[in-house]
Design a protein around this nucleic acid. Structure first.
Length: 272
DNA sequence: GGGATTGTTTAAAC
DNA sequence: CGTTTAAACAATCC
């Protein structure tokens, strides 16, 4: 379940291995042309073939291969993985695309649920207009969060999950951040106090940065490189810890549903 | 077999 | 209009 820290971990893993390479072609696998979200395979290849990778960056949960002219974006969705080589036991039927380079190297897109997609855009404008603030950028300030929580009248959890509000948060880090700020996920955003908003702001930034430092969180299926796991799981306070005790007050953590998503809360610390 | 799981988009309902 | 809910997408696990 790659969220911002996991995507950043993948970017840092592939960047030194593919910067400078020239794309020869992008080949959908297993008849899954749908993996190319923006163009037909023929058109997609016309746009990316011959392009040199200047840099690999991240915007929200998107990975961006930067060309001199244009961008190839990759979204891992839930189970997507980027591999620099295939191991013996990699199941070929789970491959959805291969990006071939002119030096015979390849970047393999493996995705057993097939939700992950590749996109080509001339500029990042389309994606930038769709996505909200980068939570680790200087634009994401305490003032920004407080003001924008109060511009909306929505439940906190679906608001924080909305990529058009803040780009990159997912189920894990939202549950963790709300617990740190002692905020109930169904609290309406416009009534959050300045004090709690500030705690939430600090928690979001600290969680994301610490998770990146620990190469992300592996719950079930986040791996990068050659099967390496993220180490942040050990630092989770509520996510996946239903029926266990709240680290703060020892109340039993509950798993509830908010906006159709499994949601972990301490019923004592987090009240509406 | 039924239900939950995950992120995002889109459509419909409120 | 703003917000909420549900379905769709795919495959697997319990």
């Amino acid at each position: 379940m790659p969220e911002l820290p996991e995507v950043e971990t993948v970017v840092r893993y592939v960047r030194p291995n593919i910067v400078g390479k020239i794309i020869q072609g992008v080949i959908p696998q297993n008849n899954y042309d749908k993996v190319l979200a923006t163009h037909t395979p023929k058109r997609f290849n016309k746009l990316v073939a011959g392009q040199s990778i200047i840099d690999v960056t991240r915007r929200g949960k998107y990975i961006a291969l930067n060309f001199d002219n244009g961008f190839l974006l990759i979204h891992l969705r839930m189970t997507g993985r980027l591999l620099l080589k295939l191991s013996e036991d990699d199941k070929l039927k789970h491959l959805t695309a291969i990006i071939n380079f002119t030096d015979k190297a390849s970047l393999y897109f493996k995705d057993y649920r097939k939700f992950g997609r590749l996109y080509y855009y001339d500029s990042m404008d389309y994606i930038n207009n769709k996505l909200g603030v980068e939570p680790l950028s200087k634009d994401f300030t305490g003032d920004w969060l407080y003001n924008n929580l109060h511009k909306n009248k929505r439940q906190l959890k679906p608001l924080l999950l909305d990529q058009g509000f803040i780009a990159g948060l997912g189920n894990i880090y939202v549950d963790e951040a709300l617990w740190f700020a002692r905020l109930h996920p169904q609290q309406i955003s416009s009534v959050v106090s300045r004090k709690k908003s500030n705690v939430l702001h600090a928690a979001i930034q600290r969680l994301l940065q610490t998770a990146i430092d620990n190469q992300g969180t592996t719950i079930i299926n986040f791996y990068f490189g050659e099967g390496e796991k993220g180490n942040f799981r050990e630092q989770l306070q509520v996510f996946g810890r239903q029926d266990k005790k709240c680290p703060r007050c020892k109340t039993v953590i509950e798993k509830i549903r908010v906006a159709q998503r499994g949601t972990h809360i301490c019923p004592h610390c987090q009240k509406i």
